[in-house]
Amino acid sequence: MSTQLTLTPGRTADGSTLLTVAGEIDMSNSASLADAIEGAPAPLVVDLTDVEYLDSAGINVLFAHAERIELIAPPLLRPVLTVSGLARLVTVRPPRPDDGPVTP
C-alpha cells in the first residue's frame, strides 16, 4: 500500500521554482518525489514544511538532487537532514511566513 504524498508545484514570492511536499516520504512513493524534482527547473526550492515522515529512500532522492535544490524544513526534519549529512550539501532553512506559493 502506498503512503499518502502530495506534490504541488508553484513559485515562491520571489519567483523561485517551488515544490511543496506534504505527507510521508518513504520507499513506496520516493520515485514520485524524484520525478517531480527532475521535472522542475533548477534551482528548485523544496518545501518540506508539511512532511510528517522522511525515511532513507526520501533522503536518497534529496541527495541525488543536492546540487539543484534548497530545502525548507520544519524543526521535526532538521535533525534527520543534519545527521544524514544533507544539510552540509544544501541550504536548509526554516519555514517563513512569505514562503507560501504565489502561483500553483
Rank of each mutant, 00 (worst) to 15 (best):
M1T: 12
M1L: 12
M1C: 06
S2W: 01
S2D: 06
S2R: 10
S2A: 10
S2I: 06
T3K: 03
T3R: 03
Q4C: 00
Q4S: 07
L5E: 08
T6G: 08
T6Y: 01
T6H: 14
T6V: 13
T6D: 13
T8N: 07
T8V: 15
P9T: 11
G10D: 05
G10T: 06
G10S: 07
R11A: 14
T12H: 06
A13G: 01
A13K: 01
A13D: 04
G15R: 06
G15C: 07
G15H: 08
S16M: 05
S16H: 08
S16C: 04
T17R: 14
T17Y: 11
T17A: 15
L18V: 13
L18G: 14
L18A: 14
T20L: 12
T20I: 09
T20E: 15
A22Y: 02
A22T: 08
A22L: 03
G23L: 04
G23F: 05
G23C: 05
E24H: 14
E24N: 13
E24R: 15
I25N: 02
I25P: 03
D26K: 09
D26S: 12
M27W: 06
N29D: 08
N29F: 04
N29M: 06
N29Y: 03
S30Y: 07
S30R: 11
S30V: 10
S30P: 06
S30E: 13
A31Q: 14
A31K: 10
S32D: 15
S32C: 05
L33T: 10
L33R: 08
D35V: 06
A36E: 02
A36L: 04
E38W: 02
G39D: 02
G39V: 04
G39P: 01
G39L: 04
A40V: 10
A40I: 08
P41E: 15
P41M: 08
P41H: 12
A42T: 07
P43T: 06
P43M: 05
L44N: 08
L44Q: 08
V46A: 05
D47R: 02
D47G: 06
L48S: 12
L48D: 11
L48K: 11
L48G: 12
T49P: 04
T49W: 02
D50W: 01
V51G: 00
V51P: 00
V51S: 02
E52H: 05
E52A: 07
E52K: 04
E52Y: 00
Y53L: 08
Y53W: 04
Y53N: 01
L54H: 10
L54K: 10
L54S: 11
L54F: 11
L54C: 13
D55R: 07
D55G: 09
D55Y: 09
S56C: 10
S56H: 00
A57Y: 09
A57M: 12
A57W: 07
G58R: 09
G58Y: 13
G58N: 11
G58A: 11
N60I: 04
N60H: 13
V61D: 01
V61A: 01
V61C: 01
L62P: 12
L62S: 13
L62T: 11
L62W: 12
F63P: 10
A64I: 03
H65Y: 09
H65E: 05
A66C: 10
A66W: 03
A66K: 14
E67N: 12
E67P: 01
E67C: 02
R68S: 14
R68L: 09
I69W: 01
I69C: 03
I69N: 04
I69P: 03
I69G: 04
